[in-house]
């Protein structure tokens, strides 16, 4: 066991797979000698000569090259520096990566991973802070994974690299260094498609993921004695572990979803719809969402008023519990 933050855990996951599988290559902008803009790949360039590759500045070209490389049987893991820069490559994700298996009835597949830091709260420039995970969840054929802690970050990333289908792996950059935990040495897998219960409770289920999870756990700790809170970390947004959400809501009878996305057509909205369809009669209070606003993500002077705060989460929990 080694104490690591999320960045270090991601790096260790990459290292394990580079060691284990000669078909794994990493490429992207500034990820080689420079170790990436967040230093996620620091040291890997020297440790694995020729397999951690700096590319020209071309997001579309990077993602599309990964599609071709994956279809040829390699396991490319590409980094886009910020999730706000993926959009130039969206056609590649939607029209090719996500569809290749289906449109060739399994003849060609696309086992690639796209890593990108997402979410706000680090006083970054414009376009560096959005939480648009719903785009990818809405795209059938992609898997979408967002870890919230170092253990999951490493294990989910290893699972993503080994997965036979394309995985969008969004990294919670606000808590990259803020969350530290013991991480097993060597290789292990956290299976995709399974949520985890981070905290057991009986009064309310709070579903969240990624960057918001630290605030959710802090809120739950502060409300100790006032409400018994079950915290469910979704971890994989697509395919979604609906069964675990329903089981938890059937137990607690209440639901709050906390995410940083714009509210309309959000993943949070989908979770409410699933619960409404499958567990309406278990609910003792209307289900609620605490999310970002349906606004463009503001520049950093206002970003902390956009991102759901711990206080907002606590108030929503108490509102639902006391309904």
């Amino acid at each position: 066991m080694t104490v690591m933050n999320i960045l270090e855990a991601v790096r260790d996951g990459l290292r394990q797979e580079l060691k284990a599988d000669p078909d794994v290559v990493l490429f992207g902008e500034d990820i080689g000698r420079n170790g990436g803009v967040f230093r996620t790949t620091d040291g890997l360039f020297d440790e694995f000569p020729g397999r951690v590759i700096d590319t020209p500045l071309a997001e579309l070209g990077i993602v599309a090259s990964a599609v071709g490389m994956a279809a040829y049987g390699m396991r490319p893991v590409v980094e886009i520096q910020f999730s706000g820069f993926v959009y130039g490559a969206m056609e590649q994700l939607i029209s090719h990566a996500a569809r290749l298996r289906n449109r060739t009835r399994g003849k060609f597949t696309c086992p690639m991973v796209l890593r990108a830091p997402y979410s706000g709260g680090i006083r970054a420039l414009e376009h560096h802070s959005e939480s648009m995970e719903a785009f990818y969840v809405h795209t059938q054929g992609l898997k979408v994974v967002i870890p919230s802690n170092p253990y999951d970050a490493k294990g989910l990333l290893i699972a993503a690299i080994r997965d036979p289908d394309p995985v969008i792996f969004l990294e919670p950059k606000r808590i990259y260094r803020a969350v530290k935990a013991e991480v097993p040495d060597g290789s292990y897998v956290v299976p995709l498609g399974r949520a985890s219960i981070l905290r057991e409770g009986t009064d309310i289920t709070v579903v969240s993921w990624g960057s918001m999870m630290k605030s959710v756990l802090d809120a739950a700790t502060e409300l100790q004695g006032k409400a018994s809170i079950e915290v469910l970390d979704l971890r994989t947004l697509s395919p979604m572990d609906t069964a675990s959400i329903i089981a938890s809501v059937e137990k607690t009878g209440r639901l709050l979803v906390v995410s940083e996305e714009p509210r309309t057509c959000s993943v949070a909205g989908e979770i409410l719809a699933q619960v409404a369809e499958r567990a309406m009669l278990s609910l003792q209070a209307p289900p609620r969402r605490v999310t970002g606003f349906d606004t463009i993500m503001p520049l950093y002077k206002m970003e902390n008023d956009y991102i759901p705060s711990k206080d907002k989460i606590m108030k929503a929990i108490l509102d639902v519990v006391s309904y």
Binding site: A64, A66, G68, M69, E91, H96
Partner: peptide
Amino acid sequence: PIAIPISSQIPHATGIGWA
């Protein structure tokens, strides 16, 4: 497979040829 979105298949050849 046949690519319909114009030019979107060109960089796949880059990826395959690079691999």
